[in-house]
Nucleic acid binder design. Structure first.
Length: 376
RNA sequence: GGGCAGUUACCAAAGUGGCCAACUGGGGCUGACUGUAACUCAGCUGUCUUUCGACUUCGGAGGUUCGAAUCCUUCACUGCCCA
């Protein structure tokens, strides 16, 4: 993997760059649709490529390991061959499941003991075997196994948790560096900064992560219950330390507003379930603001979903029709909303990139911010 | 014409003397969702009130009772059966 930093904004920390992988290039800043179980829910790859213009998608180690399982993935020749997505794939390590499935796991020094949410069976994730699993999945970018600390964790817990993540990182890297790419193309490995909402911990973690000198670095443990302002503050603290010649990936973020704020602070990569999950639940993110498509007010609004929308669903379907589909629980509603939201997210980062290169990012971002966060 | 059963909120349907403004579904309205256990979850759904609470309701009218959606009389309507 290679990262070329093309331009850094003169009035902010915003950057434009290009990541090159063996499965193609990624223009940053980028938003990466989440495809947890080898599928971006409700969206075909054809739409993902042609209409949404996604350049890279996510998969999830924990979920893919449980289903379909490593044997199938290995037989298929890796995830790209299994699901037919021939562009880059990034896999989350399962660190987020340590957080979201916390009732079903126990953390120990060796790793995380899990109970499958599917059948209750017992499993152990270690920094080492999570590397092996991601090798077998065939991720272009693999993530370190970390503990995603809750946003409201007390200082002492956040510190202990961060230190565990650091020790796990050392083990994961050691294992990564002594194992080989599984399918002939290059696989890289990103470490993850933790430290919760505490600036000194974040600094300490960023220093440690930066010192590993990997091809890219991630910021984890944000947008997990802390106020947005705290998140922005932590991004600033961390990005001051993380190397500027490597891509910075803010994990699991976020709203269009969060993404604009992140870009302004020097983040290059984002992923989030919001455009797809919230889309399936009736929420549309548009260039004019946020709409709950189930609301009665769209009942007889026969205007396009988003007058500035870039995907075909925006001018093929009206608000009144999409509302009808949601109210009727039609599957098409989820498909339309997912396509629209993802296309909007990809449009947003593409525009951000364009304005960074043009040198007017800050004024554009300010204007865009007032529009995208509005409630329609 | 006779017999039997029934009529409860937007719909369906519990409730058969006080714990009932009335269970539960559905429908409707609103909200939540951030490295996806999520086509999920939560709240509201008689009127007024921010809350407390007050008021008006269970086909219509009248009655019994301290007290009625619940008991009685009568009327209306619906369904089934017999002529």
């Amino acid at each position: 993997m290679k990262f070329d930093l093309q331009h850094t904004d003169s009035a902010s920390w915003a950057r434009a760059g290009v990541i090159t992988t063996d499965h193609g290039t990624i223009e940053t800043p980028i938003f990466m649709p989440v495809g947890t179980v080898a599928s971006v829910k409700a969206v075909h790859f054809h739409e993902l490529k042609e209409d949404i213009e996604a350049q890279i998608i996510l998969g999830n180690t924990y979920h893919l390991y449980l289903r379909p399982g490593l044997e199938i993935l290995e037989q298929a020749g890796g995830l790209h061959k299994f699901n037919g997505w021939n562009r880059p794939i990034l896999t989350d390590s399962g660190g987020y499941q340590v957080f979201s499935l916390s009732a079903n796991r126990k953390l120990k020094e060796e790793g995380a003991h899990f109970r499958s949410h599917i059948d209750g069976s017992k499993h152990l994730f270690t920094p080492e075997n999570v590397v092996d699993i991601q090798r077998i999945i065939g991720a272009d970018i693999m993530m370190a196994f970390d503990e995603c600390t809750p946003g409201d964790a007390p200082y002492a817990y956040a510190k202990t948790s961060m230190e565990l993540t650091h020790r796990w990182l050392a083990r994961g890297l050691q294992h990564f560096d002594t194992t080989e790419d599984k399918y002939g193309y290059s696989q890289t490995f990103f470490p993850i900064v933790q430290g919760c909402v505490y600036p000194d911990l974040r600094r300490q973690s960023a220093e440690f992560i930066a010192s590993q000198q990997r091809e890219g670095n991630a910021i984890g443990g944000l947008a997990v219950g802390e106020p947005a302002e705290k998140m922005y503050e932590m991004i600033e603290v961390v990005n001051e330390i993380l190397p500027s010649d490597k891509p910075r990936y803010l994990m699991g973020v976020g709203t269009p507003e969060n993404i604009l704020e992140g870009i302004e602070r020097g983040v290059d990569m984002f992923d989030c379930v919001m455009p797809t999950r919230n889309g399936r639940n009736g929420m549309l993110f548009t260039s004019e603001g946020i709409m709950n498509m189930r609301n009665e007010k769209w009942k007889n609004d026969f205007s396009p979903l988003d007058p500035n929308g870039t995907s075909y669903v925006d001018y093929s379907y009206t608000r009144a029709y999409l509302r009808h589909l949601f109210i009727s629980k039609e599957l098409l509603a989820m498909q339309i909303a997912s396509i629209h939201n993802l296309a909007f997210y990809l449009w947003l980062v593409k525009e951000a990139r364009r304005h960074i290169l043009a040198g007017d990012f800050v004024s554009w971002k300010k204007e865009m911010l007032t529009r995208v966060s509005r409630r329609l």
